[in-house]
Amino acid sequence: MAADTIAQVNKIFIDVLDNEDIVLDPTTSAKDIDEWDSLNHIQLIVAIEKHFKIRFNSSEINGWKNVGEMCAAIEKRLEQ
């Protein structure tokens, strides 16, 4: 996974969740961040799709277990 991808996603998380202390790593999941609830998850996905100018479908995002899988999916989509 490219370090730049997770860095960009980290900035999105900080902005959307309004928490400057967030430091993502590939194993980070919703249970690790208090603000990462179901409504904020929607805002995160919308922000990520807009930032990277990509679109996912629901089955793709439902399969992600952590930030690493999210970033891998972003990179895969950017390569297409």
Binding site: H41, I45, V46, N57, S58
Partner: peptide, 11 residues
Amino acid sequence: TGFFESVNTYE
């Protein structure tokens, strides 16, 4: 102005 199928969201 936008549709995000992944999260069933419209802008």
